Simulated assay, not measured.
Amino acid sequence: MQKFSAPIQLTKDITLGDEHLVLLAGPCAIEGLDICLKIANSVKEMTSKLGISYVFKASFDKANRTSSSSFRSIGFEEAMRILEEVKKQVGVPLITDVHESHQVDAVAEVVDVLQIPAFLCRQTDLLVAAGKSGKGVNIKRGQFMAPEDMQYAVAKIRNTDNENVCLTERGVSFGYHNLVVDMRSLPVMRQFSPVIFDVTHSVQQPGGAGGTSGGQREFAPYLARAAAAAGVDGFFIETHPDPANALSDGPNMIPLNELAEFLKMIGEIWQLGNAYS
């Protein structure tokens, strides 16, 4: 199956879709400066040793939490300040989600890549605003979307004269608090743009913990190895030094102290899979 026509410039210094592996990683939500710095510094050190390009990820607002009583945000201005500080102190590019088109301009002043959440991948105004920002745009495939239909989301970005768009696979939902990853979706979507595999959201159990989302992180290595072998251009992994006490998505995050070995494992398989994809 034919791949996308050309790599994209995900950030100023990172190309996605060539012979180099890219990682988007960080905590699910911005909890505070110290923990963001700890994660960013740790992952930067790991990826530097492994030859992986790294973009720090953290969400400034969890707008789609199962329950309104769950943690959402420390506040927009404080979250942006923390992201700026991470970029300044650690020297890594940034990616974060945008949920509404009016957020795009302010967020684009701080981060290098805008991410469109899976539930919002059909929202034309949001996609167009993200495309017009001139930043790289990562669109997560909706849990309800056929992989071949993601070409239309890609086209909405490219119609703004922004070619720097990629897609992320994160599983499909059949209800009953479960997600299923169909590995056929990877080569299908890779026809339209470079593709990232979201390791940790693929093992999430939405709403599966009685008003909050559960997760089965024990299956993350299996799905990551399968995606690496199938052929992808990067990985999205949420990580935390203490997942049990994380404010969002703890059950599916990879513990920070296990991440280096995890990356080494999938990197070795990715080298082989990339040669045949």
Rank of each mutant, 00 (worst) to 15 (best):
R72A: 07
T160N: 02
E78R: 15
D242H: 09
R65Q: 00
C166D: 13
R225K: 15
V55G: 03
H177L: 04
L223S: 08
S101K: 13
N64C: 07
G142K: 02
S67H: 05
R72W: 11
K156F: 09
L37M: 10
V154E: 05
S173L: 10
N138R: 03
S185I: 04
A106E: 15
E78L: 13
A130C: 15
L23P: 11
K132H: 06
E218D: 15
I14V: 13
S173N: 01
G208S: 00
A244M: 11
I8E: 05
V154L: 02
L37I: 14
G51M: 08
P93R: 14
V203R: 05
K49Y: 06
K57L: 08
V180L: 10
T239G: 00
A260Y: 14
S202K: 02
A58G: 15
F174R: 00
A228G: 10
C166K: 01
N252D: 02
D242V: 00
V110N: 02
D61W: 11
F60P: 01
S48G: 02
D97S: 11
V43F: 11
L263K: 10
G215Y: 08
P255D: 14
I269W: 04
E100P: 01
N162E: 12
P187D: 00
V90M: 10
P251Q: 08
A58V: 15
M80G: 07
F56A: 01
Q216T: 06
M145A: 13
L167C: 13
A153E: 01
G171V: 12
K87T: 07
D198R: 09
K38A: 12
G207V: 12
Q143A: 12
H201Y: 11
G75F: 07
D161F: 04
A224Q: 03
I266V: 14
V154P: 13
D105V: 06
V137Y: 04
A108P: 02
K88D: 14
A230N: 00
G234K: 06
R158Q: 15
T47M: 06
F56E: 03
P7C: 11
V107L: 10
Q103N: 04
F262K: 01
G171D: 05
S202G: 10
G250I: 09
F144G: 00
I116T: 06
A6T: 11
T15N: 09
V22N: 03
V199E: 11
L223H: 00
N178L: 00
N64Y: 07
L179Y: 10
S193Q: 03
T239V: 11
V180M: 13
F197H: 01
E84D: 09
P241T: 11
G207H: 04
V107Y: 14
I269P: 01
E84Q: 15
T47C: 15
G175Y: 02
N41T: 12
I30D: 11
A244C: 03
V90E: 09
C121Q: 00
F119N: 02
M80H: 06
E169D: 08
N178H: 10
I35F: 07
E77G: 09
G134S: 07
S67T: 13
N257Q: 11
N178V: 01
M80K: 12
R122M: 07
R158Y: 02
P194T: 00
I74E: 05
G207S: 14
